[in-house]
Design a protein around this nucleic acid. Structure first.
Lengths: 209, 209, 209, 209
DNA sequence: TATGAATGAGGTTTCATTCAT
DNA sequence: TATGAATGAAACCTCATTCAT
């Protein structure tokens, strides 16, 4: 391994460390209440160092979101490659969503929260590109499975991309909606059952009659 | 009308005016970038005055959210009272969601965005109560319709509240998800068609086979 | 006096106070080393308040420069109006320059120091306009006197504006040059004698032979 | 050449390279906006290396100033040695000033700008000594010529050092004054003509009647 | 009730400088 | 000698909120 590669790898490792620290802080405080100083302190670095690796707070946050999106994307693509029926794949998607939610629900909530217009202006090209990449890959994989279902004559004749949107959006919606209900109604952890119901309804609804 | 009632009514009117000004500013700037001074100026009041009517920025924002939630709630309940079939009612819910989205999509996005854990701590009891009230009323109305569908043997045998959750969460999810896709992929205004697809799938999925 | 005028006047007074505090701090520390907090503290105000009256540090500094430029301008115009010979007026200009230098040499030095390209970009239109106004008025008044001298056949046939430039630049140059010499050679306060010599040479040089 | 001399020479060469890089960056950005990292990058070195050759940013800047001052000094002394009349020498001084201005006006402006009190405190003895040396040499050379003119009965009976101050300060003043006018009035490149006028007035004014 | 000037804590960010390698 | 990652102090500026009038 050349000296350049070693440095590059070292740099990646450091980035990961910072992202890990950011995960903890953002998770507890949310974007606004989290401070760069706090994240730096969590990473046992000085505030200035963060800026050697991330352009600004916004970008650090997005890099964190990307890391979870990448994770999600990997798992979704993994489902596609499995040798199982279409219907089973749809069920596996549900499981992936539940897994990821359980892995880090707060960051997932932030992921959906912060992908709004104004937010994306301060991001570097690189980060924005990654965001798009993983986002469209995950989405594309789901659309592919649905397309297959349509081709097989199992699913209703709707545009597969639109159906993938529905699936994905439902996921996002349940995560957020349930989060707010948890606060308002002091109910806890019914994401799982709600997702189950949702997927039951949707997979039922996808099928031709 | 006594002097007390008149005062009370006057106060309500003033609150409405402020909320209206806040709607404009939050809609354009989002929660963080909007300033109390800007809202005050839009309402042709001084910053200090806002604090006579709302405890803080957070609460003003939530009051705004509530006003749209109330609107949504009214419309949902209106659907329930109509003399139409269950299936038509489900279709009407879709129309209500589309209407409200078109009325003020930005605020609606904020409504979902900001109902997250940390945010709700600064709210007064009164505001929190209202939030819960409209939220559960709207949700309950939907659940009632679904329950009816189940009782009529049309819909699948799932818990009606859970099914209402799914419906509602799907709505929230599509609004948010589509908003972020708009930014990432430069696509515009396909909320409507996505909602259509979603409701088609779901209403299909609700039905017994 | 109406309420509006009173407020306006009050605001002006407060601006003056801040400028006065800034004069002290900038005078001792120079532009870079002076901090807004220090100026605020000198003015017995909070840092935030400074920003109610001045857009930023740059503009506060320039406003200070303007106040001395205005003073200089007044005195120059005053000389022009006096009923004395052209040659006496030139001598009076010298006295004005010496007076102003003695009034606040440090700020005067800053005035010349900071009127450089990059600096002026952050200023508000209003401030920039004032800067130009006083600058060109003072300069114009000097040019007028010189023009008179040329018309009277006393002075050499050069463009009066160019000659005014020379006079003015000599002033600026001596203030700065002498300031740096003071540091390098530990000489003190020979601005006056240098200005005297300069004006002697120049007024001699202005005359036709 | 011994190993010590070679090292010394090598060190000088490296210093020159850094100064050259600094010239470019300071010239474009000015003292404050220029960063050590940028200068290092321009010199194809690392930031840390700059500190092996210069105590700090201030001293690097001053070294740059000195290099131009040395250049100026050389040229001035060169004029003195020429076999021409006193009056021609004064004219040559003007040409030297114009040449140097044209060579690097920005750095020259900085040279005058930054020789103010506070700035000089961080300089090493060595650098300060050089600054004084070239400064007084150039100035002394001019004074010598003027002294000669007085002795020859051509020039007015004033202290030659004071007259040299006037000449020098006029130069500094025009450079700065013209720079600020350029910004305020959008006029360009009339340093030359202003310097011409100034020298015409002054050389006229130096002469006895 | 309404004002709006003043507050001041606190955040992000920059960058000259250091030091282990 | 050279590196360059890391430091960390410090600065500017914002803005929600208060309170005397």
């Amino acid at each position: 391994m050349g000296i350049y590669e070693r440095k590059q790898r070292e740099k990646e490792r450091r980035k990961e460390e910072i992202i890990e620290a950011a995960r903890k802080v953002f998770s507890i405080k949310g974007f606004n209440r989290a401070t760069m100083e706090e994240i730096a302190s969590e990473a046992e670095l000085s505030p200035g160092t963060l800026y050697l690796y991330f352009k600004n707070k916004e970008e650090l946050h997005t890099s964190l979101s990307i890391s979870i999106l990448e994770h999600l994307c990997d798992k979704v693509k993994n489902v596609v490659d499995q040798k199982i029926t279409i219907e089973e794949k749809i069920e596996r998607f549900r499981d992936v969503f539940i897994d990821v939610y359980e892995y880090d629900s707060n960051i997932l909530i932030n992921l959906f929260h912060l992908q709004s217009g104004e937010t994306l202006k301060n991001l570097s090209e690189e980060v924005l590109a990654q965001l798009k990449k993983f986002s469209s890959e995950a989405h594309g994989a789901i659309a592919d499975v649905i397309r297959q279902g349509i081709d097989d004559g199992i699913f209703i004749d709707e545009h597969p991309v639109a159906l993938a949107d529905v699936l994905w959006a439902t996921y996002a919606g349940i995560v957020l909606w349930v989060d707010s209900k948890r606060v308002l109604n002091d109910q806890k952890d019914f994401v799982k059952s709600t997702l189950n119901t949702a997927f039951y309804v949707i997979s039922n609804g996808l099928k031709k009659r």
